[in-house]
Amino acid sequence: MNKKNNKEGFNTPEGYFEDFSDRLMDRISNSESDQKETLLPKSDGFRVPDGYFDSLNQGIQDKINKDTPKVIALHRRRKFYYYAAAAVAAIVLLTIGIRTNSSVEPTFEGLAKTEIEEYFEYNDLGLSTYEIAEVIPVDELEISDIMDDEIEEENIIDYLDDSIENIDELNLTDYEY
């Protein structure tokens, strides 16, 4: 390669190829930063109220203290009444519980559809569409699970009749798939 270039009489400055890639990368990064400066502003225009950061610490401390409930010691005599009341309540509940034990346990079928829908509406499951798709196998899904009304075969034929000029074109042969 060099030989040929020498024959043609062309020459390059000493060390030209050694630092070529460095100079190229410098130029690319410079042109990128130039572009960024002209297109994207570095400051975003947001500001905070004066003294906000100075008072933040106190605000958080207040909230933490408010969240932590204070422990109040129970008076001895009061304690006795509480225990007595609890014992009476327990006996009453047990008696009622034994009598009405025949009540039906809730079942999945027994839940109203609206209750289930409401649960999903107001509780964030934290699953994306893709994650849901991963756990539900495709072969267990019916078209009616996704669409409200099932498409009648008749309607499909009508649609094809209206929108396809030559219905024979739909009869694809194997190699056309």
Binding site: F46, V48, P49, Y52, F53, I60, K63, I64
Partner: peptide
């Protein structure tokens, strides 16, 4: 960390009051 986290949250929720709520909840 208050300032760094503040700006991180602010750029997601954009509004100062909402940022303040989220930042305080974060620290709690």
């Amino acid at each position: 960390y208050k300032e760094r986290l503040y700006w991180h949250i602010r750029r997601i929720v954009l509004n100062h009051d909402d940022t303040d709520d989220v930042l305080q909840n974060t620290f709690i």
